[in-house]
Design a protein around this nucleic acid. Structure first.
Lengths: 229, 229
DNA sequence: ATGAAACGAAACGGATCGTTTCATATATTT
DNA sequence: AAATATATGAAACGATCCGTTTCGTTTCAT
């Protein structure tokens, strides 16, 4: 009886189906597409209850956070959400797809811009480490990484996400380049790839307790390497 | 009926229990410890047949190479090795432990030393990419990565391996430093960490088809960054 | 009020893991 | 050489989970 009833309030339904008062019956296709990643749904034009999907997504987040990837099962999610398994499969075509949506509801970490590239990167990286330690974010991404090794769709989405992160990094470095802090011959996308890779590996080897000093030493090697000279 | 009988010859039994003519009955404890990672075996002092373990390990390699991580099951391995499942569990305590041993029998890639750090690294990285494309090495490591996200022991072994690779990289860079090609203030372990991370991510995002030019551009950013100036 | 649609609960078929049982084959011992 | 001990393969088991199907009920628009 670890069933903490009354847990699926409004606290976790952040991005999924944006809480647009949910009174109408016909679901607007955009929000539905935002929630459900599954292309191979059976009943296409049917109207379904978005509240169910929200409760399921919230329950999935909780199960993943509490039991981890290994303990994550559709049946647990259904029990927790007081939903039937068929309802879950009406919204998501597979376990991987549900995991994918859980990962999509993560909180985005913003990039700081103090004007000093090294400082910005250190702050950002430490922030990411903290979010891995203090929230379920790390667990979610670890699950995604594991799933992506055998699920084609998960692999694609994860690759897209990784490309997205690289692009964000790239823009931060590009701005530093525009300030003249980075050599004009530097390929920012390559640098972003280095940093993003370094972050990923820190996640999947559990090294999110690195000291700020160690982080700075590592970042400095990159920033000094690309600095204008 | 996909049972390709006559496949478990001598071709894959490489490192595991090093093929020391295996005629004696009492197993030498060292080779046994080398093969079996499991500490929680039931029958401790019992003498077992090393041939069974070798056949199982070879079959496991083949199943993993052919069916991938998702298709890898103990039952398939048992069928292929013409062994019983209990025999597998007499040698390895879990599926993860067996996977761990499969990964341990990988072929090591040697590090070249032409005297030019950038060239050496490019050649090495391209070599790793090729081994991922042309052998089962990549699939094995992808399995290990997935397994490590939920199995504590696999995680530990993978971390140890990663540390080992970082150390090897570090020594290559240290030698370049001794040649005066790398700045004396450069922390070689940090550099090794960057390179190793970059390689890992290329594996788990399936980017092992990168062109030599792209590889060189990426490597150059690191080598130029740490170069003596 | 009526009917269509989604719902929760339950059960199913299929697959896998890790364990247990059992008869057989092999190796050691006497 | 015969007897004993031990590991083995085959088979079955309980448990878990996925994804599907069925069924009776609730909800909502017309």
């Amino acid at each position: 009886m670890t069933d903490t009833s009354g847990s699926s309030d409004s606290k976790t339904s952040a991005s999924g189906a944006s809480g647009a008062s949910a009174s109408g019956t016909v679901i607007d296709a955009a929000s539905e597409a935002e929630v459900c990643l599954g292309q191979k749904r059976r009943s296409i034009g049917a109207q379904r209850n978005p509240e169910s999907a929200k409760a399921i997504l919230a329950a999935a987040q909780e199960v993943l956070a509490e039991d981890g990837y290994k303990g994550f099962s559709i049946e647990k999610v259904a029990r927790r959400a007081k939903a039937g398994k068929p309802t879950i499969y009406r919204w998501w075509p597979s376990k991987a797809a549900l995991l994918l949506d859980v990962y999509r509801t993560r909180k985005q970490v913003d990039y700081p811009t103090t004007g000093n590239l090294e400082d910005d990167l250190v702050v950002f990286v430490q922030d990411v480490f903290r979010s891995w330690r203090e929230t379920e974010t790390g667990e979610i991404f670890r699950s995604m990484i594991a799933e992506a090794q055998s699920d084609e769709e998960a692999s694609k989405v994860l690759s897209d996400y990784a490309a997205d992160r690289r692009e964000a990094f790239s823009q931060v470095i590009e701005r530093a380049k525009a300030r003249g802090a980075v050599g004009s011959d530097v390929n920012c996308e390559v640098t972003a790839d280095w940093i993003a890779s370094w972050l990923w590996v820190h996640l999947l080897t559990g090294r999110h307790d690195e000291t700020p000093e160690a982080t700075r030493a590592a970042i400095r090697q990159i920033t000094q390497g690309i600095a204008k000279r």
